[in-house]
Structures are given as structure tokens and as C-alpha cells.
Design a protein around this nucleic acid. Structure first.
Lengths: 345, 345
DNA sequence: TTGAAAGCGCTAACAT
DNA sequence: ATGTTAGCGCTTTCAA
């Protein structure tokens, strides 16, 4: 049997409550007793039972990360790992543990957060994705749980969320290509049910409109956050009669597929086609040619989301002065994949 | 206040213990009461308090994943994300939650697992890495905790672990290059404190020896699981008077750095240098040229480790018939980066 | 088949 | 500054 607070109390000749006070650095405890109790504690190898503490304090000092139903299909792994690193780092710094969960589908996801939150297993949840019309968000919102979104919700614009200004980011990326003289610019998007796909598409269209450039439905293709998407998209694009001379891509990984496809078709980047994508993963710098990419501060998003959630949890019995929405700044990193200027035609 | 077992009991006109029995599918409970109680449960929106249950049952149905101190520096993110996916999937399937933790250094890591395990927060731990002389492993082993290692321990060969036969895998990769006629083969290793680096180096040397080929200290360089390592290594290799015509690399990501470096130096793969690396990440297939790589079944390793740990936890009060060590099979996937045969010289 | 009661390890009034 | 006491919500003998 593990050593409990009572064992420590007995051996130290004090009451259990005194030991408890020492544990939580209660102000009104004599330095002497504190020292003695602490000594006995590690003499006995005492470790507080976290479950017992949680039971009475009604707080778990834990948060939960919900992975999307099929992380492997939707996103580049890099994105998630980086987000998670940020979340875990900040949570640990603030004395919180992090639980990782996922469901096979939306129903399971709801059941999962419900079990965890209502079962007092965790104090709050971070969703790593923002889907349009998400039942998980509905559940969390309606039951007044603590949660923060990576991204944003269209239905509930005021909920806690950490996001980029994806419209602006995409606008910037597109603008960059326009400034190089490109007139025909394509867009490879992500899954349409994700808010981020929608926002980036919007920014792209806005930039073209502002520049008075033509937009064509066939210059926009939807895909996933996978190389295959880029690979497929490119054979489509390059066969168009009026093919784009540059494209904006939802994710660096998609660019890799494009690069591969272009190589096989014997096209050169940036001479035949300029590329700008999002996320700026480390590999972007090392590809041939190095990829222009919008750095969106993924780690920072995770870190910030984690801090926001924990602040919300701790403020919960007080005033609700937590800001609703936090925008992580983005930064376009121009590399070789987009340094080719188009000749006047 | 949340609804408790008592509220359900009162409303159903039974005792709390009956409700508890319904919850755990106790055999001796009438179908009628069970039905009625369950009805009341979701009528009231009852959710069992996981902490309270843990406190009395002395089991948490949770395991913990320890991330290495600086995941970002040591390994490709892909590797970890894939491992984690496997662990979480299997754990959830078996009704376990997964906690994610990390420490800034080895001391913090020990403190962390100690707090979690001794504090009855989790029932067991999975270590995602195998370092030589690891104090975390010491701690876990000496305190008789439930844990499994991804990799293996040299000090404690009998502990639960999931691993590849890395010596053989590296032997196979090297043998493949030898069979193409290469006589001068280099090796880019990982951090020397990792067991996996040691094992793969061993397999490489073994293959060269078995083939009666020369080995040279300058054909072996140590690095990290980063592109930069490959990038640096290659400028070193290519300046050697008797430079290798092929290299084995510890990780695909390192190969990407090599590819970039070779491109800048105006060398061609596989004509000037053949490459084989480990892990077979999705990008390996999409690089130019596609990379030959040893698939080590990362997801499977995580999945298996998770299952083993949970089995160990559940068997703990019974017989110790859990197998100590599980080897995940590997498979060399040959692609363009290594299809060039050397001419007889 | 069900109920009563004790207790898991801890905290937090309320005393002193 | 410290002790006493009463639970937190659940499971589990023991009795009925």
C-alpha cells in the first residue's frame, strides 16, 4: 500500500490537515513544522494521490486534446505534432497534464468529450481543427464547457479560439504572386468542410479581384492535406488550355506532391510554375527548389491555445475577462519556388 | 452540482450500491432494475465521476506517453505522430485514456513519471525512445512500475519493449547497396546516445564485413534526425578523396537534407550517389528522386506497445506471462534513389 | 437480488 | 499555527 497523508502525519506527530497545508504551501504554517513534514515526506517517499485531491477539489488540472477523426488523412502530421508540442509545453509549465483523445467519427468524438468533461476527468478541451457545423462544438458550447478552438467557428464567432488571419494570409500569398506579374493563378484547397479551406480560398479570390485579374472555376481544385492531392491537381492544371503560371497551395505537403508531378511532366519550378504554400514546415526549406511558404506559427498557436484554456478554467468562478479570439501573426517566407517574374505579354 | 450516483438511486427508488452494480454490469442484478436505472441515468444526464471511481478502485485506466526531452531536435515529427496515433488508437479501443508528458531534461522526466505513477494518476508509461543509460528507465525498473519501451534497453534486456530488429534492418539496407556493386558505402547515424543509432551502425558494419568490403572511420558520421545533418554530412562526404558511392541514412528526413546538398553541389541521385534510409515516411515516395527506405512499421509499434502495456497492467495481480520483447518486422522498399548499379572498376 | 455501511486519500470549514 | 470533523462520489464487503 502506498504511503498516505496519514502516515506522514503520524510519523511527524502532526495532524493530516497540517500535512495537507504543508503540501499546498498554506501561509499560516510554521517554517519549522513545514521543514519537518517535508523531511518526513521524502523520507517515506510520499506522493500525493492526485485522484483523491481531484475528487475533493473538483478540479483535475488536466486538459484534453481532441485529435480529428482521421488525422492521418486530413492533415500533415507535422502540423499536429507541432500544435501538440506547443500545447503540452505550456500546459506543463502551468502545472496541467494533457490527455490525448480521438474518436472514429463525430458521434464518438462527442461521447468522448462528454465522458471526460462530465466525468470530471479533465477541466477543458482543445479542438485541433475547425469544421463547419461541428456537433462537437455544439455540444461543448451548449453545455457551457471550457474549450478552445484552433481555428474559428462560423456558428459561434465569440467562442475562445486561436487562429491565423487566414483570409489575409492567403491574400498576401496571392498578392506576392501577382506582384511578380502572374495573371493566371490557381488554388489548391483543402477539404471543403474545414473553415481554413474556406478562409484561404476567400483571401485568394479577394486578391485576384482587387488586382482586377480573372478568376476561373477550373483554376481552383479541392483536395486533402496530402501529397497525392498536389500530385493529382498538377496533372489537371498543366493540361488546361489556359493553364495557371502560379499556384497557391493549402499546405506545404501538397506542394511536395506538385513538385513531384511537375518533375515527372518535365516542368521546372519556378520557371514554368511558381508555388506558394502554407505552414512553412522545416522541409520546405530543404526541398528542391526551396518552397515559398506562409509561416503561421503553429507551435505558437498550440502554446497560446493551451494558455487561454487554462486561464479560462482558472477564471471560471470569477469574471469572464478572457479575450475571445486570438490571432497569431503570419509571415510570408519567399524562397526559390516563387522568384520567377513573368514577362509582359 | 453534477448529478451523482445518489441522485440516480433516489429517483429510481433503489440504493446507491444497486446503481453502482448496474454501472459495472454486475451479474446478479435484475434485468428490470437495470433497465429502469439506466433510463433514469440518461434522463438525469448522469456521468460517473472518473476520479471517485479511480480513488476506490486504485486503477486509473490511463497510460502516459513520455515524449523525449526535445522531440523537435531529435526526431522527425512524423515518427512521433505516427507512434502516438498507434498508441492512442489501441488504448482507446481497450478503454484507456492517454496522457502526454515531457520534461526539459532527464531529471524532470523522472520527476514527471514519478508524480504520475506514484500519485496514481496513470497505471503505466510508454517511453518513445531508448537512450543508453537512461535514468528514467532506471527509475521505472527499480520501482517495479508498468512500462514499455519503444526500442530496447541494454542494461535491462528483459523489460517490456517493442522494437525493430535494427541490426538486421540496417544489414539489409547495406546489403542491398552492396548487391548493386557498391564498394564504398557511407553511413549517416543519429545521436550516439540512442540505442537505435548503435544498432543500425552495427548492422551496416556487419554487412560490409560479411561482404569483405572496406570500412573507414571517415565514411561514418553522426548527426541528428534532421535535414541539416544530411546537408552537412554530404559536403563532407563528397570532398573525401575516396568518397562513398552510396550511403545508408538513419532517417528519411536526413536524406532530404542530403538530396538538397547534392543538388546544390550539382550531383545526381542515384547516378553519383545512391541513398537508402529508414522509416519510409509518406514523403519518401514523393521526393525527387523517390527514396529507397526501410519501412519499420511505426504505427504498428505504437499500437503494439500500447496493447502490451495495458495487458501488463491488467495482468499485474496475476501471472506474469507477458512476452518481454516484441519485434516489429521491417521491409526494405526500393525506389529510384538506389537503383543505379556501379560499373566494375 | 438488493441495501447498509465503511472507507479510498484528500481538503476545507470550523474550532482552538 | 494546528487539530477535528465532515464529506467529495464511488465500490465493496457483509447482511438480509
Amino acid at each position: 500500500m502506498a504511503v498516505t497523508i496519514k502516515d506522514v502525519a503520524k510519523k511527524a506527530g502532526v495532524s493530516p490537515s497540517t500535512v495537507s497545508r504543508v503540501l499546498s504551501n498554506h501561509p499560516r504554517i510554521s517554517a519549522e513544522t513545514s521543514r519537518k513534514v517535508k523531511e518526513i515526506m521524502d523520507q517515506l517517499g510520499y506522493h500525493p494521490n492526485i485522484m483523491a485531491k481531484s475528487l475533493v477539489s473538483k478540479t483535475t488540472n488536466s486538459i484534453c486534446i481532441m485529435l480529428p477523426k482521421s488525422a492521418e488523412e486530413l492533415f500533415s502530421n507535422f502540423f499536429f505534432m507541432e500544435l501538440i508540442r506547443g500545447i503540452v509545453t505550456q500546459a506543463n509549465r502551468l502545472g496541467f497534464d494533457v490527455l490525448l483523445s480521438s474518436g472514429a467519427n463525430e458521434k464518438e468524438e462527442v461521447e468522448c468529450v462528454s465522458r471526460l468533461l462530465n466525468g470530471h476527468r479533465v477541466d477543458g478541451v482543445i479542438l485541433l481543427y475547425s469544421r463547419i457545423n461541428d456537433p462537437v462544438i455544439d455540444f461543448l458550447y451548449k453545455n457551457n464547457h471550457n474549450f478552445v478552438l484552433i481555428g474559428r467557428s462560423e456558428q459561434y464567432p465569440d467562442i475562445l479560439s486561436v487562429d491565423n488571419d487566414n483570409v489575409q494570409a492567403s491574400y498576401d500569398a496571392t498578392k506576392h504572386l501577382i506582384s511578380l506579374g502572374h495573371k493566371r493563378i490557381g488554388f489548391v484547397s483543402g477539404p471543403p468542410e474545414l473553415v481554413v479551406s474556406k478562409d484561404r480560398l476567400k483571401g485568394y479570390l479577394l486578391a485576384l479581384n482587387d488586382a482586377g485579374l480573372e478568376t476561373k472555376p477550373e483554376w481552383i481544385v479541392e483536395g486533402e492535406f496530402l501529397q497525392e492531392s498536389g500530385y493529382r491537381a498538377i496533372s489537371f492544371f498543366m493540361n488546361l488550355p489556359d493553364r495557371p503560371t502560379a499556384i497557391v497551395l493549402i499546405d506545404d505537403v501538397v506542394s511536395f506532391g506538385v513538385l513531384r508531378g511537375l518533375y515527372e511532366l518535365n516542368y521546372k519550378v519556378p520557371e514554368d510554375l511558381c508555388l506558394v504554400s502554407f505552414n512553412n514546415i522545416p522541409l520546405a526549406e530543404m526541398s528542391t527548389p526551396p518552397l515559398s511558404s506562409v509561416d503561421i506559427g503553429i507551435y505558437n498557436m498550440g502554446y497560446t491555445a493551451s494558455g487561454m484554456l487554462i486561464q479560462a478554467i482558472q477564471n471560471n468562478s470569477g469574471d469572464k475577462t478572457v479575450p475571445g479570439r486570438y490571432i497569431i501573426p503570419h509571415r510570408l517566407v519567399v524562397r526559390e519556388s516563387s522568384i520567377f517574374s513573368v514577362q509582359k505579354d
